[in-house]
Measured scan of single mutants.
Amino acid sequence: MPSETPQAEVGPTGCPHRSGPHSAKGSLEKGSPEDKEAKEPLWIRPDAPSRCTWQLGRPASESPHHHTAPAKSPKILPDILKKIGDTPMVRINKIGKKFGLKCELLAKCEFFNAGGSVKDRISLRMIEDAERDGTLKPGDTIIEPTSGNTGIGLALAAAVRGYRCIIVMPEKMSSEKVDVLRALGAEIVRTPTNARFDSPESHVGVAWRLKNEIPNSHILDQYRNASNPLAHYDTTADEILQQCDGKLDMLVASVGTGGTITGIARKLKEKCPGCRIIGVDPEGSILAEPEELNQTEQTTYEVEGIGYDFIPTVLDRTVVDKWFKSNDEEAFTFARMLIAQEGLLCGGSAGSTVAVAVKAAQELQEGQRCVVILPDSVRNYMTKFLSDRWMLQKGFLKEEDLTEKKPWWWHLRVQELGLSAPLTVLPTITCGHTIEILREKGFDQAPVVDEAGVILGMVTLGNMLSSLLAGKVQPSDQVGKVIYKQFKQIRLTDTLGRLSHILEMDHFALVV
């Protein structure tokens, strides 16, 4: 994948999101292997301009796509893939009243899908469409860049269908997702969380590099694949309309690839034109409109599966009536509230959605109805927002919020430890010299600072030695090549209790 991002070429006709291997024109390309080798690009942008032909009021008969309808489940399912879809609609009884809503608040519980998330729908649909058009064949390999849930859905379907599955996901995604993927037989590649989507090191860039190296491999490409919004247009939206008897006044959905909100909203605009569509985008993402909503100094966020630093091709923002931004604290607070007060075992993005819903639905009156999409299960986040310690460490809970008995030293300040200034190293000294210094002084790690004293990161003896043994660096290389740029900081005025929580999850903390 090139470091400079080429513009994806656009073909003359058809839909841009065809499933299957992508040609340089962004659509299915038939021909000899030699032709494909000559024409197939190194990668295709996940934010390529959409060429979708959908228009409100256009006859369904003019759609270029294969459409399906929700099917009634048999008493005995032939395999677990038949437990994807037909998820329950559940009334939220307490939270709406707590925040003064007059309307009825309903939750579409997508964590009841077989793999635990709304992404099971698009995973199965992308595979079925690729099999139907002859792209996927027995023994082929599926590769997908994902925040985890699409990966789980694909790995689940691949396990049943017999495909090899490789999932490329950023490091910030939970260990629970990784464990589930491994249990399903998927191979996992992790990428830096802070890598831009168009960087060769991003999950998108690495996935395309693997595709170019592995024979008979395919990126189904949830960011561009029409099967993504079509899955929701054909099934999720129809289920909502049936469950609500066609009567709903507002739908609120958090947005990642945009397939969920695009597919549902398009069908609702056709069948229930008075329904307002509300999009939820986390602070630090750029999906919301108008652009002024996205202006923030924050560039990272903890909530998973929603928000991006690019506009995915499948996201149709014209069908969203209003956007709201959400933050991590309210997302996790509301997710825990949904679990504790409503018994809905949902993930953090569901918290984002409901946090926005109780604001947006203030305009609705008694007798009206708001539906929220709860995308995934708490299963993926047992060591994250479900953990009091994690919430404390991230600053989303305060010590006084917890009532468990603490040891005698818990409320003492870090400054009472009488710490001395640490050994520091410059980023320009060599790895070999740094190892000598650390061994001589008896230290395992040291902060790396520039000549102005600005902290650049941390270097550890173990990481340097393993990097040297693996051949990633040489003793003569500058130590700046092996620094940890993500590390926890703590102030002298913070409590030892807070430091204790940090050290339970990290090997060190830097006192500043």
Results as ranks from 00 to 15, higher is better:
G115I: 06
I240M: 06
H203L: 05
H203T: 09
L105H: 00
E131T: 04
M169T: 07
K102A: 15
T146P: 05
L101D: 00
P215K: 08
R51G: 07
K102N: 15
G14I: 11
E176K: 09
S61Q: 13
M126P: 01
G274L: 08
S217D: 01
T257Y: 00
K211F: 08
A158Y: 01
A8E: 10
K247L: 10
R276G: 03
C15M: 09
C103Y: 00
A231F: 07
G258R: 00
C275F: 07
V160L: 12
K211A: 11
G14S: 06
K75F: 04
L81W: 03
L248C: 13
I219G: 00
T150D: 04
L156A: 01
L251P: 00
I44W: 03
K97M: 07
S27G: 14
T146H: 06
S123T: 06
D238Q: 03
K267D: 07
L136I: 09
F111S: 00
T87H: 06
L220W: 00
K211G: 10
R132K: 13
T146F: 02
E9Q: 04
E187N: 07
P2Y: 08
T5S: 14
P12Y: 09
P273N: 05
G20N: 09
D133T: 09
V204E: 09
T5M: 04
T191K: 01
L184M: 11
L106D: 03
G205W: 14
I188D: 04
K36D: 03
K25M: 10
I167M: 11
R196W: 08
N149S: 02
R51C: 02
I76F: 03
Q222K: 04
S147P: 00
E176A: 07
F112A: 04
L124V: 11
R125Q: 15
S123G: 05
K94P: 01
P170N: 01
I84K: 08
T235L: 11
D198L: 08
H232G: 02
L220E: 00
D249H: 06
Q7W: 04
A186H: 00
A48F: 09
G134S: 07
L210I: 08
K267H: 07
G14Q: 10
D198V: 02
E144C: 06
T146W: 01
H67T: 08
T262A: 15
R161T: 08
Q7I: 13
R276D: 03
T87P: 06
